[in-house]
Design a protein around this nucleic acid. Structure first.
Lengths: 221, 221
DNA sequence: AGCCTTCTCACGGAAAACCGTGAGAGAACT
DNA sequence: AGTTCTCTCACGGTTTTCCGTGAGAAGGCT
């Protein structure tokens, strides 16, 4: 006997929510536990109910707080919520951005309904999921790299780092403070600060320790 | 043709300095480039002359600023000065402490003169050096571990960490802030702060990144 | 010519880290 | 009984990091 997968849906178009619910109800492994029409509602729902849903289907464009903000909220609160972004944009930049924010799946709104079901099951199992058209967009950008269903090469999860950013990253791992780096690199403290901020953002980490751990894992040091 | 090894001697007893100079002058590889009678003089000398001496022979007990303070100065300024501590104490605690502060050799004042010469040459080559009686003290404390001439097992360079300190160290590598750790461990923020401070001191690192790097190198995470 | 990226710097404010020091309670070992 | 170790907490202060935002210069690409 399988455990049910509980799902919450967030989209500002109620008609779309109803559509998704209809599709999902055809599968008896999955059960809808609630829905939201704005980002704020999502956050309220999850903060009052605890993690009452295994998977959140999240639209990016919503009033009050958009999907980005919702993802940022989970990240900030260290809530490891499994999220599938449902978007009308298949822009690679957007995909990258939500992936950086910890989203585990991405399906475009013109996917067939069964894709949503598959995505939910895959993500609930701890895998990643991207609908075919998204994968194609990614493939175009990647050109040459192999993107298998449900997994992405690491390089794709981040913007690439510039030379200077790597300089700063290396010094961070050597326990340099910002002012020490500024001295060493003959830069203004403000400049080094900017690189630090860019690194935190690009690598999707919370602090200098996160930078150091990234550098270690990726053999930058 | 060998390069000369330049040495600076710091001790508040001028007669001892003269003795050391006399001993060192018997060896034509080594040359005295200056001496100091207080810790402050040492710092002044090195900060004005640059690193004009390869090796510093340093007494612990000195007026104005003691040897500890001098070692802390080098550490803080990231000056990789090779230092041999010359001490009348053969207390293991003291040895540990100066080693943590980056000192590369330790000889007690009742060592024969040739030991000083050997120590200088070893440290100048980048090795560690401990006079026999110090090694014996260390051996007693270590009992069972092998201490070969010029090298010490890593565990000896640090106080061992307590359980709680390890808890905090692990969370540091996960990018937890102090208040997040306090929540997670059900402790006061002040308490977690204390563990952080103890870790910084014990592991001889400058900041949280140093802690993380230590944890990685020592497979704590 | 227009756009993009990178590099550089600035400012102000909030949060977190770092520093020094002291201290009580309980367990453990001598 | 005394010492040492660990765990716990406090307080006040300085420094550093983090955050958001904006912007000019140089080089490259379309």
């Amino acid at each position: 006997m399988k455990e049910k997968i509980y799902v919450h849906v967030a989209d500002d178009h109620k008609i779309l929510i109803e559509g998704i619910i209809a599709v999902i109800n055809t599968d008896k492994e999955i059960e809808i536990k609630g829905y939201s029409l704005t980002g704020q509602e999502v956050i309220d729902w999850f903060s009052t109910k605890g993690n009452a849903a295994d998977v959140l289907i999240l639209d990016i464009t919503m009033p009050v707080l958009d999907g980005f903000e919702v993802l940022k909220y989970f990240k900030k609160k260290r809530i490891n919520q499994k999220v599938i972004v449902l978007s009308s944009y298949d822009d690679v930049k957007i995909v990258q951005e939500v992936l950086n924010l910890g989203c585990k799946g991405y399906i475009s709104k013109n996917s067939a309904g069964e894709h949503i079901v598959n995505a939910i099951k895959a993500v609930a199992r701890g895998e990643q999921y991207f609908s075919n058209d998204i994968q194609n967009s990614l493939l175009q950008t990647l050109s040459g790299q192999i993107v298998s269903q449900g997994e992405l090469p690491d390089k794709f999860l981040f913007d690439s780092l510039t030379e200077r950013e790597v300089d700063v990253l290396k010094l961070v791992t050597k326990e340099y403070s910002t002012s020490e780096m500024a001295d060493f690199l003959n830069l203004s403290v403000n400049t080094v600060e900017t690189y630090r901020k860019n690194l935190l953002r690009k690598l999707n980490v919370k602090n200098a320790v996160g930078l150091a751990m990234y550098a270690v894992k990726n053999n930058i040091v």
